[in-house]
Structures are given as C-alpha cells and as structure tokens.
Design a protein around this nucleic acid. Structure first.
Lengths: 353, 353
DNA sequence: TTGAAAGCGCTAACAA
DNA sequence: TTGTTAGCGCTTTCAA
C-alpha cells in the first residue's frame, strides 16, 4: 500500500510537498499548534503533540525554512555569504571549512563564491547575495575600494574581511601578521649567516605584499644590512613569472645567497629556478605560505605557515557576535604565522658562525 | 544632505530595507507595476517606468529574492546544495568552482558543505538543505545507502552524484574512468619492463578503490602476469599508513620493481617510504590523482590525472537539464582520466626492451 | 496600460 | 491549552 501511494505521488506531476496546513488538517489542529510542535514551543498537550507528530510522519511533512525565515522578525535568512579568492588555495578552503562548521552549529547555511582577483565580480556577487538577504558576509576582497558596502551596512548585513582589510571602508577584519611574520623569516636567514637576501613578491599594490615587503625591509634594517633595490623584485604574477624573476636575480653580478618569497606560487617558481640553476642546495630559501608537499621537496622547504582554520574560526566568531547584536567598535584580529624550519631556510650563508 | 540622511538611517535601529510597497508609494504606482519594472515584464509605459526607476534609485530598493521565490510557481529557490568530501582536496574544489560558475550563469546560488566520509553528516546536511528547499543537490556520497533520498525525489529535488555512484538508489551520476584509468597506468608500467607491480589502495569497500583494483588486476591478466596477493595492500587510510604499508611491501623477500598507488594521500606516503629506503630512483611509481607539486618532486611523478572542472561542469549540465524538465532515463557520465608521464612511471624495469 | 485582491508557507500578536 | 487573524515581500490572477 505504501509503495503504491508513493508511486502515485511520484507520478503525479501536480503533487506538491505537504504544507503546515495539510498537517493541521490531518491532525485536526490549528496552524499555530502545528507550528508550536515543529518549533518545540511550550504549551501543547502531550496528546495533541502526538497527533501532530503522527500527521507529520505520515505526510512526510518538512517545514519550509525559507517561508519561516521570511515571516520571522527581521526577515533574517540564517545564511551567510562567503567570497573567496580561490577555493583551490589551501588558505581559502581552510577558511571555508571553518566557517561552514561554525555556521552549521548555529543553524546557518553558507553560500559561497570564488571571485579571483576580479573587483567587478566581487561587486556582482555581493549584489546577488544581498538580493538573497544574507545576514552576513565574509569577504576576501578583490577590489581596492569597498565603500560601496555602505548600502549593505545600512541593510544591517554584518561583514568581516579576511586576509586583507577593506579599503575606504571600516569593518571587522581578520588578517595574519604579514609584516612580523616576514621579518621573522628574514631574521631567520640573517641568523644563518646571510646578508645578501633577495625578495620576490606579488603585485605591489596588494596590501599583503606591501606588508611582507615591509617586514623584509625592517628585518634588514634591524640587522644593519644595507637595502639593495637590485635584490628586490615585486609585481610578480604566478609561478612562471617567479621562475624568470628568480633566474634573473641569481644571474646578476653579485647574486644573493638567500631568497625570501612572499607567496606560495612565487615560492614554487623560485624552487624551479633554483633547481634549474642547480643552486637549490646552496641558496637558502624561506617562503610565505605553506602548502602540501613543500615538506617532500629536496631540500624540504622552510616556510611561514598561516593557520586557515584559525582565521576562519575567528572570522565566524566575530560575524556571529555582530549578528547577536554586538555594537563594539570594529576590531582587527591578527592571527600569528608560524615559522616551520625544514631545511631550505637553514642552509648556512657566508657569515654563518 | 545625503550624508545626513544616510546617518539617520544608519543610526535608526528600527530602519528596515525598503520594500516594493515603499517604491510603489513613492512612484505613485501599484505593487504590480513596480513588480513589472523590476522583472522587466512588458506593458509599462516609458513615463511610468521612469518614475518607478527613480523611486527605486532614491530609496536604494533591492528586491527580496527570497520572498519572490516563495511566491513564484513551484516555490523554487534557485539554489542548489553541494555536498563534498573535503574542500581541501583539489578534486572537490575544482568541482565546486565549476558548479558555482554554472549556477551563477543561471541565477542560481550554491550552498555547500563538507561532509568528509561521515554518512550521518551526509544525511544531516541533506535534511538541512531540504528544509531550505534547494532545487537540486550535487552529492559526493559518504554513506553506503542513499535510498533515503526517495523523499527528496518525491519533493522534486533533482540530484546528481559525483565521484561515486549512489548506492541502493538510481540517479544521474558523473564518475571518472577508474578501472580503465588504472589499467592504463599499470599497462604503462608493464610496457616499461615491470612484471612485479605492487598495488596500494584505500578502503576496499569504497567503489573507487574496488574499480581501481579491478583495473590493476585486469592489466596484469592482459599481460599474462600472475597475480600475487602479497603485492596487494588495500584498506590504507591516509599517508602515514601508506608509508608503513609501502615500507612493508618493499621489505619483503622478493619486492616489486614498480608500485601503483590508488589515491593521492597514498601516493604521498609511498613517495616518503621510497625516499626513506632510497629506492625512489629505482622503483617505478604511477599514482592515481594529480596534485600540485607532484611535478616538482624528484623524480617527477607520473600520474593519472582527473579533470575536476570537467566533472563539475558535466554534473551542473545534467542537473540543470533536470531542472529544465528533462525526463530522460538516468544517465551515468564517465569522464576520462589522463596519464601524465613525468619520470617516476618511466623508470625501466628488469624486462625493459 | 494599470491595478486590486488573493495567497506562497509560515510566524507574531492576540484572543478565547 | 488552543485557535484566530494579520501579514512577512513578493507574484499570480483577473478585472478595469
């Protein structure tokens, strides 16, 4: 009998999922009573609750959360939008996982999108998510001006920026300690006897690059090492370009004995270059960002590792605090990076003790 | 003046976003007329349209897609749920990107969740997404029985399974050619003079492992090579276990001259083991799955690469065809895998020409 | 070309 | 303890 009934429903093109009315009718109760049972509100007699639950079970009723949210106070959707630069990146996927977990715990859902480094795409996605009335946004910004988000703020959409702070717009932010991290990495090379240290960085206008370069410069100054512009290459896009830049740097008149790379793709290109020049065992290398398999290379790569899960968790905490009504001043959380010594950064330089 | 007005709105805790009624009132039009303008429906005079658009602009009105979807025929939400095993995996993130792109093109939104290999989590997430009334689901299944999805099917939620077919449940599916791919990889080793080839695989109950093992066995039979159980290790979980298993395999009385690994973590563990035994230049290795940096190891790794974007694109195509009303028989698409020769798989064996 | 009324599925605010 | 009414923001249906 059940099978036949099921078949009928499947085959009937006009069949629609049961609503709260259907349940109420079947249980001989009112809408509100069913609503109370569904939402575990008090004030329903055990007998009535039984009847309602039976009706729910026989009808396979599933409350429509969309409709429920629409009516609820504030029209909140219990959803948050997540804009990432590139899910293929371990940083991004770690952040996503952490945020999904936190959201799930609170009955929220995460709608996500990759935006690359495309400022237009960033705005487009924000608009789409806004139309869906997300309660909050977690944004790894692509553009250089987030002032347009004033509109979202007016609509009471909470926002947290990760990896890079928003520009022209004040907001909660979770970043890593780019400058101190880089300084630490460069100081590590100095400690191992290097004084001619090259820097290879991504596009200079990106804040993270600026900060990492600042850390490099600071560490050299702290060690009383003169800064040589010829040892600094920024504006590198991708591993191929990094490969070329590293070859150029190492082929100069007085090449560096150590390199500091400001991003994982650049590190990869640099490793290729050093291999090609057969310098990978003689030139020390410390890179920003850790990725899988860096510990399987020869020599194993010394890196400054970010903690994507910690970043995501903190972003979620901050966002949910806002959603819970916090009106504190905007905060910027700085997550520390960790130096992982594996070999490439400990290759001794000419001034090694 | 604008600034002050903005401030007022920001500071007024009772401010709510403008609705279609506000626009109608301000434009001196009816709800339906505004709705027509917003949805670009015909039958609105240019003058009226101008007034409505002005009102929309001055009020910063943004249609509420949630409410709109609720009322629309069928109550479709233009959203699809995506259940992935692990976003940190290149396969998963590639699939996610492809599906997000396809969804975006059609005005859909993707809500995602990582479920690991946890069957309970799979059902939990499906329930949550069902309550949100997603129109479709793309599922990398964790459990061994998806018959529970009959309910979702009755609700007209379309489903596509990726990477592994559903169990106890007929559905559209997109998989890769595990068996033929593995057979190809093993035949490649045979062609390079190997006859004693070890197999290291993941948990045996997972379909992909079964199929990859089947491909291995088939290739050996095709080459008239006797199968030795002692050269086969399955049930390996993670790279540490793979490391141990590989060491054990290579430390036997008559060790293999080549290895075939059935999954990327297992490949990683095996590489570590071969390094430790200093066999990485003498024992050939072909692995299923490609990951970043496999081409930077020494020797560079020969792999069978999947095409995550192709898998995601195909899954999205199939899903949207269903959402557009296709009633074809359920289809299973098989995406080919590609052998990428980089060095480790071309190390010659004792029978090399 | 325009609009009034009804209602999507549910919850809020009040009765009874 | 239970139910009634209104209405979330929008689209549908049908009338003017």
């Amino acid at each position: 009998v059940v099978a036949v009934e099921t078949d009928l429903r499947v085959n009937d093109a006009r069949w629609t999922p049961p609503t709260i009315r259907d349940v109420a009718a079947r249980a001989g109760a009112s809408l509100k009573t069913v609503s109370r049972v569904v939402n575990c509100e008090p004030g329903v007699s055990p007998a009535m609750e039984r009847r309602v639950r039976d009706a729910i079970a026989t009808l396979d009723y599933r409350p429509n959360l969309t409709a429920s949210n629409l009516r609820r106070v504030g029209g909140r959707t219990r959803s948050i939008g997540l804009l990432l630069s590139n899910v293929g990146n371990p940083l991004d996927s770690g952040v996503q996982r952490a945020i999904e977990l936190a959201a799930l715990d609170r009955g929220f859902v995460v709608i996500g999108s990759t935006i690359g480094e495309d400022a237009d795409r960033e705005r487009e996605i924000v608009n789409i998510f806004t139309a869906r009335r997300v309660d909050g946004l977690v944004i790894m910004a692509a553009g250089h001006d987030q002032s347009y988000l004033a509109e979202q703020r007016r609509m009471r959409i909470s926002m947290v920026f990760i990896d890079r702070p928003a520009a022209m717009f004040e907001s909660d932010t979770v970043v890593v300690d780019n400058e101190a991290g880089s300084a630490h990495g460069v100081a590590h090379l100095v400690r191992h006897g290097h004084r001619r240290i090259g820097f290879l960085g991504a596009v200079g206008t990106v804040v993270t690059t600026e900060q990492r370069l600042a850390g490099y410069l600071g560490a050299l100054q702290a060690a009383d090492i003169e800064i040589e512009q010829s040892l600094i290459a920024v504006g590198i896009q991708g591993s191929e370009a990094a490969h070329e830049a590293a070859v150029r740097l190492m082929s100069g008149a007085n090449p560096p004995t150590a390199l500091f790379t400001g991003q994982n793709l650049i590190t990869i290109g640099t490793v290729r270059a050093l291999r090609q020049l057969d310098l990978h065992r003689r030139v020390a290398l410390v890179g920003f960002d850790d990725i899988q398999l860096f510990d399987l290379l020869e020599p194993r790569l010394t890196v400054l590792a970010q903690d994507p899960l910690a970043i995501g968790r903190r972003a979620a905490e901050t966002l949910f605090a806002r959603l819970d009504g916090s009106t504190e001043a905007y905060r910027t959380d700085v997550i520390p990076v960790k130096l992982i010594e594996r070999g490439s950064g400990e290759i001794p330089g000419p001034f090694a003790g």
